[in-house]
Design a protein around this nucleic acid. Structure first.
Length: 600
RNA sequence: GCCCCCGUAGCUCAGUAGGAUAGAGCAUCGGUUUCCUAAACCGAGUGCCGCAGGUUCGAUUCCUGCCGGGGGUACCA
């Protein structure tokens, strides 16, 4: 939680109050560090229930030090704090058990927050945290010649979101799609195509036909293991530049690239660089040489490896027995290339947790190399490269695997979601102008949001019933709330400004919304710190729910308490809130990669 | 065998660098629209927080062991 002026003042007062209320013990403690402002600021936390206060200071740890009971300490210190001169209005201390709760002046918080949101608009929550720092984020990394399944969706949308989050924080962020366009799998594809692909027409539906070949290869390889040897040989041909193998590879690649491009447009996903493993083909020898020169390599069972000084990791393979390279070799070349080219602040790899060991190995090799070469710390990338892992996408509880053909095509999912969204629009808002476009935004939004519904590290279940549910904690719920806010904005004819009477927004429901609005910048930073957009997703649900309470509220006589009414000042105040929530909801959805239609 | 991740309400999950009575959604039941979009809102209830120890003023959170699920474990990526 970042510090604002309320927290700073609270910490300052608490520090003074401790010294005043316990002057003797303070002098005797010899540990004044726990009483200084910076330390206290760090100790501030969020009360369990927002109604208890905006933030709180637990004082349990002072019990022994001050020889007093925590609840008594809280009472004494809180009392002193409220007696201190200066800005006595801004934040009030309130003892509650072993906590000192902070009551922030609602008028100040309201005008402060609304002023910032309304004046900064979509830039609210921006930061210069990342000024002059480069951030690399690799995501998607789909494999050429394989279909785009829901498995790839997770990496793609997490990475796409992180790219937007880091940009917002001022980092010079580069999103990289590092396609799997090289490796033994292409040997398999080449063998399969030579054997069974002569009569396959690749002019239509090519991706699915290539998948059929791939699946058939694995089926037949079970009965006939010599196929795997043929595949390795074919990949070796490809690496050696055999023209026919290269021609086939290029065909597979162009088919896939066109397909990926189409799908990414459909999802609204962006990349700054699209490259592939093959880009590194001419950069691997140099890395291998460096490792050899550093004395880290060894020949083992015919293969060239780097033994790692970690008993839990197998050696990292650089060259197979036949001299061909591996995934790890290319990733090492990529690490070195990116470090030399960009000198990044951090470089992230958004890849599933199944590859955790692979990244541990690669990062370990780099660390050993940098150590062996005696590089100064500023020349080392160790510690700056991170594997951002995530759990599996399970289908109705089971595993998905390309090889067995047990896979859900992403487009089948989005098509269904979009169709359902269209059905709902026709039912609820048939006069809407751009029905197809809106249905697309809602359907795709629902699919994307479903991936953010759990923390990054956890497996996410793909269940049709849940992905196609538009009620409750879903993307469409957020979009719907946003659309209603836009509807109010269209209807309201007055000017929207932060120059309103904050007292008119003093109700508990409004205050809850304002507190959440004030939290947004910290949420964006937390997302960057944890590399998990789930935080934004759950925050937006809280914000939308809090606003819907205001929106649906009834007056004491049972009538709905309208946002826009005959009371000009009240309407203006509420509309300032409406515009602020709409702004943050829109920006938050943008950070997740989800569109926010104005009507639906 | 060894290593990593996970285990919270019937289901799916939150629980923010230990803290205040462990929270949401779905599902179930009931209610709200003379209509600023009911894709919403309100109400109803359920928890040996996998088990057993340990550290601490305080553990769902940290440590150890065990049980259960998933993943990884050199010529796939």
């Amino acid at each position: 939680m970042s510090s604002d002026r309320f927290r700073l003042l609270f910490a300052k007062k608490a520090s003074e109050a401790f010294r005043a209320a316990y002057s003797e013990e303070y002098a005797a403690s010899g540990d004044e560090q726990v009483f200084n402002e910076e330390y206290l600021l760090q100790q501030l936390e969020q009360p369990k229930d927002p109604s208890m206060g905006r933030f709180a200071l637990p004082v349990f740890r002072y019990g022994r030090l001050l020889g007093d009971k925590p609840p008594d300490i809280a009472v004494k210190v809180a009392g002193r704090m409220n007696e201190l001169p200066g800005d006595s209005d801004l934040v009030r201390a309130e003892a509650a058990g072993g906590f000192i709760n902070a009551r922030v002046n609602p008028v100040e918080l309201t005008s402060d927050t609304l002023d910032r949101v309304l004046s900064q608009g979509s830039h609210y929550g921006d930061s210069d945290l990342g000024r002059n720092r480069k951030y690399l984020i690799e995501y998607c990394s789909a494999n050429i010649a394989k279909p785009y399944g829901v498995g790839h969706l997770r990496s793609t949308i997490i990475g796409n979101s992180l790219r937007r989050v880091f940009r917002k924080l001022g980092f010079d962020t580069i999103g990289i799609n590092y396609l799997g366009d090289w490796g033994t799998q292409f040997g398999k594809m080449i063998v399969a195509y030579r054997k069974w692909g002569e009569n396959v027409d690749l002019n239509s539906n090519a991706v699915k036909k290539l998948l059929d070949l791939y699946v058939r290869f694995h089926d037949e390889a079970k009965k006939n293991p010599s196929l795997d040897d043929q595949a390795r040989a074919a990949f070796k041909q490809l690496e050696d530049g055999d023209p026919e193998a290269v021609r086939l590879w290029e065909t597979f690649k162009s088919i896939s690239l066109a397909e990926f491009d189409r799908i990414h447009r459909m999802l609204g996903v962006e990349f700054d660089i699209i490259t592939g493993e093959s880009f590194l083909n001419d950069k691997m020898d140099a890395v291998i040489e460096r490792l050899e020169k550093a004395g880290l390599t060894r020949l083992s069972e015919g293969a060239l490896v780097v033994p790692l000084d970690d008993p839990n990791l197998p050696p990292c393979l650089l060259r197979k027995g036949d001299g061909a390279t591996l995934y790890a070799t290319r990733d090492l070349a990529g690490l070195v290339y990116r470090w030399e080219t960009y000198r990044f602040h951090e470089s992230l790899y958004v890849v599933g947790s199944a590859q955790a060991d692979h990244f541990k190995q690669a990062f370990k090799v780099i660390a050993m190399l940098e150590e062996a070469e005696g590089l100064v710390p500023s020349e080392r990338m160790t510690g700056r490269v991170k594997h951002i892992d995530f759990g599996w996408v399970k289908f109705e509880g089971g595993a998905m695997a390309t090889r067995s053909g047990n896979i859900i095509f992403l487009e089948d999912v989005t098509d269904k979601a979009v169709a359902l969204a269209k059905e709902k629009i026709l039912e609820k808002n048939p006069s809407l102008e751009s029905i197809d476009e809106t249905a697309h935004q809602i359907g795709v939004g629902a699919v994307i949001f479903s991936q953010f519904s759990v923390r990054r590290q956890k497996d996410v279940n793909f269940v049709w019933k849940e992905v196609l549910n538009f009620e409750g904690e879903t993307g469409p719920y957020l979009q719907y709330t946003h659309a209603r806010l836009c509807s109010l904005l269209r209807k309201y004819s007055g000017e929207i400004t932060a120059e309103i009477d904050p007292a008119l927004l003093a109700g508990a429901e409004e205050q809850r919304v304002i507190e959440l609005l004030a939290d947004f910048p910290a949420i964006v930073e937390d997302t960057a710190r944890t590399y998990d957009p789930h935080l934004i997703a759950s925050y937006l649900l809280r914000l939308a729910a809090a606003f819907n309470k205001v929106y649906q509220r009834k007056t004491s006589d049972g009538r709905s308490d309208k946002i826009i009414s005959d009371d000009v000042n009240l309407s203006a105040s509420r509309m300032a809130l409406v515009k602020s929530v709409q702004t943050v909801l829109h920006e938050g959805l943008y950070l997740l990669g989800i569109e926010a239609p104005e009507e639906m």
